[in-house]
Design a protein around this nucleic acid. Structure first.
Lengths: 252, 252
DNA sequence: ATGCATAAATGCATGTAGCATCTAAGGAGT
DNA sequence: ACTCCTTAGATGCTACATGCATTTATGCAT
């Protein structure tokens, strides 16, 4: 049927294959750990203690280990740098400009992860590291046009970002804005029980614009992605809203 | 303001940086050259003449050169393997399972390109190479769920795909299906002047399902992405349709 | 000349989104 | 206890996109 050679041919070829013939780039895996807190999209940034870009703020990342899958490397970065297990992680884009790292040729396979703010804040606090911040992002463009995205410190001053990490942040924001419409994004950014207002504020922070309250309510409820818990929030200073939880459709 | 070290510090660091400390993977760039012909999505596949997977069908690709950007490598592959310049090319996904290539650790940064079938057929014919086919794709899933995608030969028999290229094809189909709604995709797959029927057939081939004729017409015309040329197709065996051309919105 | 296939416009029903209005209900201040 | 404030949540109206059916137009094959 096929013209595949006999296995021993291929095994002989592999035994003599010289993998060092081509110069190889280093490959890093960088992760945009995103959350929404106080009405702003935020990303976890770490202050660089080594050259290059020492003192600048960078995404948590690591060099890819030689026998490790890309997904595993991203999960390892999230576990090591943020102490989180089982977060939602997805590949974003691979950045490969020849001069993006002054040391040597380094590709960055970027991932993004969505984490609820309480978990991420706790992870940052547990580290007790002043070189780790949950920086609000400055997104200077509307819709899904894209472009670099900056970050601010707690005092509102812009943070100097290392490498091309402003472009990576921009790609991450663009990606989740685009997925918000049709994917069940937003639930990863909230606790188990949340009001529809909480969910809407998350969407508004991601999109960078206000949404119609009633249309949002109807759209979310009609899709059947959330179910009422019967409980209500307390102590909110006004009529307490019904709390909902995410209804996993894959279980249906 | 910032704590960046003096430049000479960083230069000294770079001069002594040992890039060989980490083992590095090989990086390949593979391109899914997509078109729509005779109602089917097709991809350009080349029969492998070397191990591994000799005799199997593979996406055109190349190892990344050490001073070359990823985008440039993809453009080089398209120019070298298909003789095309200036095609629409976009990064797709990076595949990095440790065992995806038996030779050594090889990452594949996959790209996809959209080319109109006449141009791509001409490029294939100019090569005069029986090891180069424009294979129709078998997409066994609906919507945007995803999964591997196979390819068939001219006689309808399935082609044995090399490496994880079935997964790469699946990702490419998933991506353009998803972008069809909101991006001006489809115009790259058609000649300069085309009827709305031609455009609809392209969309139907990509989506794998029939579309409502009138809704499609209104939707496309309302978006203002196409403008009538005033010319009509001839010799079509029925009432000749108006021919349209793509209206570049960036020029507005 | 007639029929056929498709183009292209039009009308109608349905579903969804934006918007305004109304009532509900708890907290804060008096 | 009473009132005010704020937000929740429901309802109705309008505008618009979409699916579907109907009608007319037009080049080509017979």
């Amino acid at each position: 049927m096929t013209n595949r050679p006999a296995p021993d041919d291929e095994l002989a070829f592999l035994a003599t294959y010289d993998a060092s013939r081509y110069p190889r780039p280093s490959v890093a895996v960088d992760v945009v750990l995103l959350t929404v807190l106080d009405g702003a999209i935020r990303a976890l940034l770490a202050r660089r203690v080594d050259h290059p870009h020492r003192g600048d703020w960078a995404l948590p990342g690591s060099f890819l280990q030689i026998d490790e899958s890309l997904d595993a490397a991203a999960a390892r970065v999230v576990a090591t740098k943020a102490g989180l297990e089982g977060a939602f992680i997805e590949q974003l884009y691979t950045f490969g400009a020849p001069d993006r790292d002054a040391r040597t040729r380094v590709l960055s396979v970027a991932y993004y992860a969505l984490v609820d703010p309480a978990t991420l804040e706790r992870a940052v606090a547990d580290r007790g590291d002043a070189g780790l911040v949950l920086a609000p992002l400055d997104v200077p463009w509307a819709g899904e046009s894209g472009g670099p995205v900056g970050a601010r410190g707690d005092d509102g001053t812009p943070l100097q970002l290392a490498f091309d990490h402003a472009a990576i942040l921009g790609m991450a924001v663009k990606r989740i804005r685009g997925k918000l419409d049709y994917a069940p994004i937003g639930f990863e950014l909230l606790p188990d029980a949340f009001s529809l207002r909480d969910l809407r504020l998350v969407h508004e922070a991601i999109l960078g614009r206000a949404l119609n309250k009633d249309s949002f309510r109807r759209r979310i409820l009609d899709r059947g992605l959330v179910v009422a818990t019967g409980r209500r929030a307390a102590g909110v200073g006004h009529r307490p809203p019904e709390l909902y939880r995410f209804e996993d459709r894959s279980a249906t």
